[in-house]
Design a protein around this nucleic acid. Structure first.
Length: 651
DNA sequence: GCAATGAGCGTC
DNA sequence: ACGCTCATTGCT
């Protein structure tokens, strides 16, 4: 008899099912293998969870249809983790397993196992020397214990190197490490940093872009124990390594760590669940710190790994905040045209003269994604749908080349301001491409390069150049940038999102962290009100203070991690049906409904409701929503619903 | 009164 | 997408 986890999407069938095993299958039908079984007539995929003598099931059992392969891909640890993640996020185990276990590739599976290798401890971990408690942390890692820490990297730090060292110490102690990073560029950086420390073969990079065969090959290397260190984006948190010693996650505030598919788990939360169950160490690193990470420190669950203030001051670039750009524009006509304040212009010029590149961070891609009236500065809106108008092509905004609505796509050649009747347009937010053009005119003879969306640069040389980048796409400069100009800060800070302040500081620090220290001439100019707490946190390089304030304010307004929240999105009748059968914890606050901004493609008229409970009722809320979805699914009630627990973004 | 047929449902 | 139940139908 085999107990099987079935890959069926129905919420009320999210449990184990027993099957008989015939004698020819019995050898291979071991826990963890993929199987096909007949379930209500149809053939479905599943995984053997365990073998047992007898079944509790009173009815009669069917036989396994097929043992797909003898590879035991679902380890007991991951089977348990999948259930825990499903419970935490009010989702199904099958959905989690789909995220955790890649599709099989028979050829890759048939290839012989490469020989494993032992990893020696790294000779030099002095890079960690600036963080007072790091020595104790690494020692605990090397001793096979499970220390937990939240680490704020110094500006300009070689953080991939630090992660590699932590991984190497773990691997040398005979355990494995999983390093989770936001994107492919970071995978490459961390992988390269690991190579010399743990050796080829002992480290693998898991990435989506590899193609199914190579991806599965590397995943198998982790499963079979060849790879002792696994680097990858969010799905790597499920890497099937045994003897897990360390889960590290870089920049947990990055959106990429939030899984966009049901049940929408966040890699940080999965990492915490997994490490807790495995007794493994946790390392949450970043330049900035999230409220969630701060909560772990304040609860005493994780240690603080931060450098002394004197070292921070020594390493940070000199940072200046400028508010009203219009009053501080440079005298230089070219700089005026590029909308550069005198101080920013001077900082850039100084860095270029010193032979170093300059990073220019602009929060929007594209050309002129938001337009205003040239006379009264009122934002201009589409006459048909009130969407924002934008200039898609490189024409000067004052020449009034036809703007296009970003929502409905209608071209409005005869634009006229609804407030004052003027026909003139001006840029309200300037995109990366246009900024690049303007900077090129302001600094003649200096090469201008852009990095963003489709075309992300990984690195740039340490020679004079202007690098215009959207947040998250900033290339690493050889030797560090001489200066960074953080433009249009108000656009980042002014967003309605509750994470706006945290996210703004995160993006600013990600850029400023690539700049040389003040002592080496490094300068950062941020265009934003200097009195704002977030701007202050950047100027003083104080991510911890900012996170503490952010956490306190989340407690005040009632948002995670201070409370637990569930976002329900569905058509109105489905939403009503779900809430009708849900036995919510007493005192659950029910907010909404409002129009859903989070409906799947093609879905019309979806609404959103928010359910809010104190932290202690988080599990009860998830359980209630799981049960409610089960009831709806069993009754075959129509209408899709989306349930997200503690969504990364709200609003 | 009872076989033959079909829709609905659970799902090992 | 199968096999079970249960209802309906139609024939003796």
């Amino acid at each position: 008899m085999a107990r099987v986890a079935l890959m069926v999407p129905l919420a009320h069938l999210d449990r184990d099912f027993d099957y008989l095993v015939d004698t020819t299958q019995s050898v291979h039908a071991q826990p963890g293998v993929r199987v096909r079984v007949r379930f209500a007539g149809r053939l479905v995929d599943g995984f053997v969870l365990e073998r047992a003598q007898a079944s509790e099931h009173p009815g009669k059992l069917g036989f396994l249809e097929q043992v797909v392969s003898a590879e035991r891909v679902l380890t007991p640890e991951l089977a348990r983790l999948a259930r825990e993640v499903a419970t935490r996020y009010a989702g199904t185990r099958a959905d989690v397993l789909r995220l955790a276990v890649p599709g099989r590739h028979a050829r890759a599976e048939a290839e012989p196992v490469a020989a494993g290798s032992l990893v020696a401890p790294p000779g030099d971990c002095s890079g960690w020397g600036h963080y007072p408690h790091a020595a104790g942390y690494l020692e605990a890692l090397g001793a096979g214990r499970g220390p937990r820490a939240v680490w704020q990297a110094l500006p300009g730090a070689d953080w991939p190197g630090r992660l590699a060292e932590a991984a190497a110490v773990t691997a040398a102690a005979g355990r494995t490490a999983v390093l989770v990073v936001p994107d492919q560029r970071d995978v490459d950086r961390v992988y390269s940093a690991c190579l010399p420390l743990v050796g080829t073969g002992a480290v693998v990079a898991l990435s989506a872009g590899l193609g199914p065969a190579e991806r599965y090959r590397r995943w198998l290397a982790a499963l079979r124990g060849t790879a002792r260190v696994v680097v990858g984006p969010r799905a790597a948190v499920f890497a099937p390594v045994a003897e897990l010693g360390l889960v590290a996650l870089w920049d947990d505030g990055d959106d990429n760590h939030a899984e966009p598919r049901a049940p929408y788990p966040h890699a940080r939360e999965v990492a915490l669940l997994r490490a807790h169950a495995a007794g493994a160490a946790v390392l949450l690193g970043g330049y900035a710190r999230t409220a969630e990470a701060q909560a772990l420190v304040e609860a005493g669950w994780a240690h603080d790994l931060v450098a002394a203030r004197t070292v921070v001051r020594e390493r940070a670039p000199r940072t200046t905040a400028l508010a009203d750009i219009d009053n501080q524009l440079a005298r230089d006509p070219a700089a005026r045209a590029a909308r550069l304040p005198a101080i920013a212009f001077a900082a850039a010029r100084a860095a270029l003269t010193a032979g170093t590149p300059v990073l220019v961070q602009v929060p929007r891609r594209g050309y002129v994604p938001a337009l205003g009236c040239a006379r009264c500065r009122e934002p201009v809106r589409c006459r048909r749908c009130h969407g924002p108008l934008a200039l898609p092509a490189p024409v000067a905004p004052d020449s009034a080349g036809a703007p296009v609505c970003r929502w409905c796509g209608v071209l409005d050649a005869a634009f006229r301001c609804s407030a004052c009747g003027s026909r003139g347009l001006r840029a309200r937010v300037v995109g990366a491409q246009r900024t690049a053009e303007e900077l090129g005119r302001a600094f003649t003879g200096v090469p201008v390069r852009t990095s963003g969306a489709a075309d992300v640069l990984a690195t740039v040389a340490g020679t004079p150049a202007l690098i215009v980048s959207t947040p998250g796409a900033e290339p690493v400069a050889d030797g560090g940038y001489g200066a960074a100009l953080l433009l249009d800060g108000w656009a980042l800070l002014g967003r309605a999102d509750l994470r706006a302040a945290e996210e703004t500081l995160r993006r600013w620090m990600a850029a400023a962290g690539l700049v040389r220290a003040a002592g080496d001439g490094g300068q950062v100019v941020v265009v934003a009100e200097s009195e704002l707490a977030t701007v202050q946190a950047l100027v003083r390089w104080d991510p911890v203070g900012h996170a503490a304030a952010e956490l306190a304010s989340r407690a005040e307004v009632g948002f995670p991690p201070a409370v637990h929240l569930a976002a329900l999105d569905a058509a109105p009748d489905a939403l009503e049906g779900l809430l009708e059968v849900a036995e919510l914890p007493p005192g659950t606050e029910v907010l909404g409904p409002v129009d859903s901004a989070d409906a799947p493609r093609g879905a019309q008229g979806w609404e959103r409701m928010l359910l809010r409970v104190p932290r202690r009722d988080g599990r009860a809320l998830a359980r209630a929503l799981t049960a409610a979805q089960g009831v709806r699914s069993a009754r075959k009630e129509p209408g899709a619903t989306r349930v997200q627990i503690d969504p990364h973004r709200i609003g």
